[in-house]
Design a protein around this nucleic acid. Structure first.
Length: 271
DNA sequence: ATGGTGGTTAGACCA
């Protein structure tokens, strides 16, 4: 019998400040699973009860004070898996869970890759060096996942727009952190190592422009449309064939006091 | 070449 799983990834940039927006989105769209990044919320202050009331009783959270933070909210039972300390730092950039049981189970990984600062030089900018180290570690992780977790899904704010049409101007952004060749090549190596299927690009191949983020610093984001695709859903090789549909909820960027990222959703047949 | 905006949390730090 066909079982469809809907998964959304959304960098919310403070889950407490935008709790009403998350609840509105969940009420309207009712995805099975919502993966959040940049919750900026210690675990003991996470608004668990509000999400439970909305039907998302099953939660795996990994937060810290002030920065970063990831969470998985689910209407289906989930088994929390151990969160990884990427680059040896306990900085709440990964969480994982298993959803479903037996042969139909999938493993879901939610990552928040470091943004990397402004200067695209690892010698001059330790934040960029950290980002490159993180991507290398993601490659090692993906090789392992390909061998041991073929029914895996990797989502998150990866802070890299890997393809030419993942940004508003490929040429103008080649020196801009998130689209430099060292980052985009690194991310393509991660995809190759995991044999991941890039779900949104399977549905909307190049040269269609696809964005999930618009800077706060650009006024008239909607008309100028200087976006980038920083948020990703990747499917392990045993899941790619089940991909049904996807959507990017661009309209949430126009909500009052929005996140600079918008939700990205995929619907997937898992058995 | 620069500065533009936003969140956390109380002066920077991060995006």
């Amino acid at each position: 019998m066909a079982d469809t799983l809907s998964v959304v990834t959304w960098n919310i940039n403070s889950v407490r400040l935008r709790l009403d927006q998350v609840l509105r989105f969940l009420t309207e769209q009712q995805p099975d699973v919502l993966c959040l990044q940049e919750t900026k919320c210690p675990n003991d202050l996470f608004p668990k009860g509000a999400f439970e009331k909305a039907g998302y009783r099953h939660q795996a959270i990994m937060g810290m004070k002030g920065y970063n933070g990831v969470a998985i909210l689910s209407r289906r039972p989930l088994e929390p898996l151990s969160a990884r300390e990427m680059c040896g730092k306990p900085d709440a950039r990964h969480i994982a869970a298993r959803i479903g049981e037996g042969a139909g189970a999938v493993t879901l990984h939610n990552f928040y890759v470091p943004a990397g600062g402004d200067i695209p030089d690892p010698e001059a900018n330790p934040k960029f060096a950290h980002k490159l180290d993180f991507v290398k570690e993601l490659q090692v992780f993906s090789e392992e996942a390909r061998r041991t977790e073929p029914r895996a899904i990797l989502v998150g704010d990866l802070n890299i727009a890997p393809l030419e049409h993942d940004v508003w101007s490929h040429k103008k952004l080649l020196d801009i952190v998130s689209h430099t060749p060292i980052e985009t090549n690194g991310l393509m190596d991660v995809i190759a190592a995991g044999e991941w299927g890039d779900a949104m690009r399977l549905l909307k191949p190049e040269p269609e422009k696809v964005y999930s983020w618009w800077s706060y610093r650009s006024p008239d984001w909607e008309t100028r449309d200087l976006g980038r695709r920083l948020d990703h859903v990747w499917l392990g090789r045993d899941l790619v064939g089940g991909l049904q549909s996807g959507r990017i909820f661009r309209e949430t960027r126009g909500w009052e006091r929005p996140s600079d990222h918008v939700p990205v959703r995929i619907d997937l047949e898992i058995d």
